[in-house]
């Protein structure tokens, strides 16, 4: 019974949270208030943990909350509940897109949508950059972070030997550098 409720709660979250993982947060607070399955403090912890484990944040939150509530089964059911509406909606849209791929109207819409999509990702990047270089309202960024960013920019764009390497190489390398130089301190 608890599994059914978990599925239903996360199905609603997946259906109404528009705009990516962080948009699920207000829904999770609401679930916490109504069900008492987990506390606000646990949610706050989870935001931090989601940023330090792989995977989309919304999915990590659903898995964690499901696990707290009903173990492994809960983790699976909550995650499936969260993604079920996405799958349904996107499948519908993509069938529709296939049908109208050659329509002038649809192509014209995408002519405008593409630069907008890129611009919105840029806006999201601005937030990530702020949180990374100026954490906790710091006024001046740590110079070591700036140096690391400059080195990574050069390695991924300018240096011939390294710019074709897989992105995960740079991510893991940065993790090692961060741990060795104690970049969070």
């Amino acid at each position: 019974m608890i599994l059914l409720r978990l599925f239903w709660e996360f199905f609603q979250t997946g259906l109404f949270a528009v705009g990516g993982g962080m948009a699920t947060l207000p829904f999770l607070y609401d679930i916490s208030d109504r069900t008492g399955w987990f506390t606000h403090a646990q949610l706050a912890d989870m935001v931090a943990v989601s940023e330090s484990t792989p995977g989309p944040i919304g999915v990590n939150m659903a898995t964690y909350v499901g696990f707290l509530t009903a173990g492994i089964g809960g983790a699976v059911v909550a995650t499936l509940g969260l993604i079920a509406p996405s799958i349904l909606v996107i499948l519908l849209i993509s069938v529709f897109l296939d049908k109208f791929r050659d329509s002038r109207l649809v192509n014209a819409a995408f002519y405008g949508l593409r630069p907008a999509s890129t611009a919105m990702i840029l806006a999201a990047l601005v937030l990530v950059v702020k949180a990374t270089f100026l954490p906790n309202g710091l006024a001046v960024p740590d110079w070591r972070l700036l140096v690391l960013a400059a080195v990574l920019l050069a390695l991924t764009n300018a240096v011939k030997q390294t710019k074709k390497l897989h992105p995960i190489v740079f991510i893991l390398g940065s993790a090692v550098v961060g741990a060795l130089l104690r970049l969070a301190e």
Partner: peptide
């Protein structure tokens, strides 16, 4: 873990920048 992820976050910024 905190220190490693301070480094990873810088890298993620650069990678998203390149992707944009």
């Amino acid at each position: 873990v905190k220190n490693a992820f301070a480094g990873v976050r810088v890298c993620v910024c650069v990678l998203i920048g390149n992707a944009v």
